[in-house]
Design a protein around this nucleic acid. Structure first.
Length: 507
RNA sequence: UGCUCCUUAACUCAGUUGGUUAGAGUGCCGGCCUGUUAAGCCGAGAGUCGUCGGUUCGAGUCCGACAGGGGCAGCCA
């Protein structure tokens, strides 16, 4: 008998093994118990057969409850019906603790309840899969940059001033002086890039905006590469290689996790295609329906969506009415009545979600149709544009007034800057924001004044242009947004073990 | 911060134009079933209807304030 983990079972086929874990589900019949065990490395069904075990072991199996901790000894048997491909024929059980009543059942829970129980929720199958992917992506990011000669450098978390101005920051007391928690490491990355050539930072970032949306956190992680002697084109090329590298790695190595998450794999299968690169001006034309993408029109697509939603609401209502009539007619068995009542509840919930969409889509249409050149793309605008693509899209050459002060002016047209946003497909929206940086001292000073930023706070930054200024570029990637996109979880709160956001500081 | 929807059992939700004792499913507990994948079937227990105030003979239901949550927008990653 050998102590092992579920993930390692493939090396112990037909052998006696001992697994140490927790009960994640239990099903029973008269002489059989199916115990779904998780041990951190995976999930595995363990079968307790009355004919195979002692009376005592059978009774122990009967007493096991959800989340109880247990050591299970038995034979590892290959079974293709199981998710991990193996099953344990149990011979002995060693119970460490029987749990009275585990708060999280295998049924529906709301996000608020689950967040209160986040410390337990992390044990659930989907959360487990998300955290494994998070870990892998973190590793792969380091691998990507290290393989290409980048040096990882750290930006400070306490800062004396806002890096980019506008954002709301968390204020702390730093030996009597106000200090702010960092909202970006980019400016510091520019400094270390002038020391090492190619660098990246990977650290936590803090924003004190009172945003309660599925895309925002108060504390999140950012990756910010910065490269000396890079221009915007090289920057975009790097972004594309980087995203393709990560997506490919997850696709090739994390299929079981993607399966648990029920991730549609279209994204992963299309990732080899070149990412379209379009200018801001073209993006606006697409948004306003004046330019099609592969024969798909943005406004038309949105109108079709709305019609589809309305149709579906009607279908649901009809279905509900029929089921209610059938129940009222009588003569139905209790089980069938319950089934129909459940179905009606499900349909009602679907309707309330659809009605939310029905309220939102017309607003998105309005926003798209009335979009004025020079405005920044809003969340819904990004959704509208990226619905039309099946790979990430690069949008570059932005009006200077809506972008940060440090972006380099476009040599061809003074009104634009050499910035780029990488938008993820399937309506997801922005995951990367990057730019070639302004390397001319006078122009940079001018921009700081235009943005009304405190010049003295940027003196050290201006030194980078005084002493050996070179063209350079970089980008910033929101780590949790990337994970959210890869795993397709509905809320960014699920992509970090203990999320911090407006109204949430515990657990 | 603005708009909008919501708060009823441990969980997810029904509850019609205000009217006796408040409904279901799930979970927990008991029973049945030899292969289940959110198993199934039968049974039992479980509620200060978010808080405060108002209208009314009567409020889960109507009105107001407050608190908390979801969605969207803004801000952004």
């Amino acid at each position: 008998m050998v102590k092992t983990t579920i993930r390692e079972l493939t090396n112990h086929e037909a052998q006696m093994v001992c697994l140490q874990g927790w009960v994640s589900n239990k099903r029973s019949s008269k002489a059989l118990f199916f115990i779904e065990l998780r041990d951190g490395s995976g999930f595995c069904q363990c079968v307790v057969d009355q004919n195979n075990v002692s009376e005592e072991v059978f009774q122990k199996a009967k007493d096991l409850s959800l989340a109880s901790s247990v050591r299970i000894t038995g034979q590892a048997v290959k079974d293709d019906r199981q998710i991990g491909g193996y099953e344990i024929k149990v011979e002995d059980l060693d119970v460490l603790q029987i749990v009275e009543e585990y708060p999280i059942s295998n049924k529906a829970h709301g996000i608020e309840f689950l967040m209160e129980k986040r410390h337990l929720w992390l044990r659930s199958r989907r959360q487990w899969a998300v955290m494994r992917i998070r870990s892998r992506v973190k590793f792969t990011i380091h691998k990507f940059f290290q393989e290409r000669g980048f040096i990882q450098t750290d930006a400070p978390i306490f800062t004396g001033a806002a890096c980019e101005g506008t954002t709301t920051l968390f204020e702390t007391d730093f030996y009597g002086d106000p200090a702010y928690l960092s909202q970006s490491g980019q400016l510091y990355a520019e400094a270390t890039a002038m020391a090492h050539g190619k660098v990246y930072t990977f650290g936590p970032t803090f924003r004190a905006e009172k945003s309660k949306t599925r895309r925002h956190l108060s504390e999140f992680w950012m990756i910010e590469p910065e490269m000396a002697y890079y221009d915007l084109d090289m920057d975009m090329e790097l972004i594309e290689d980087f995203i393709r590298y990560i997506v490919t790695d997850i696709y090739e190595n994390y299929k079981p996790e993607l399966e648990i998450l029920e991730r549609d794999l279209t994204l992963f299968e299309n990732i080899h295609k070149p990412f379209p690169k379009i200018t801001y001006d073209d993006a606006i034309k697409i948004l306003k329906g004046k330019k099609d993408v592969d024969g798909k029109n943005a406004i038309q697509t949105l109108e079709n969506d709305l019609a589809e939603v309305k149709n579906r609401i009607e279908e649901c209502k009809k279905d509900i009415a029929e089921r209610e009539a059938n129940i009222a007619a009588g003569g139905m068995k209790k089980g069938a009545v319950n089934f129909n009542k459940n179905k009606i509840d499900t349909l009602k919930q679907e309707i309330s979600k659809l009605e939310e969409k029905e309220r939102n889509i017309p607003q998105w249409l309005e926003s798209a149709k009335n979009f004025q050149h020079g405005e920044d793309l809003g969340g819904s605008d990004e959704t509208v544009i990226t619905r039309l693509f099946d790979t990430p899209v690069m949008v570059y050459k932005w009006p200077k007034d809506i972008k940060a002060f440090y972006m380099k002016r476009d040599e061809e047209d003074d009104n634009y800057v050499k910035g780029v946003d990488c938008l993820a497909p399937e309506g997801f929206g922005e995951i990367v924001g990057g730019a070639e940086r302004e390397d001319n001292l006078d122009l940079l000073v001018e921009r700081i004044k235009e943005h009304d930023l405190p010049m003295e706070a940027f003196e050290w930054y201006l030194d980078l242009r005084r002493y050996g200024s070179v063209p350079h570029a970089g980008f910033g990637l929101g780590f949790e947004r990337l994970i959210m996109w890869l795993t397709n979880v509905s809320h960014i709160r699920e992509t970090i073990p203990f999320p911090r956001y407006y109204g949430r500081l515990f657990p």
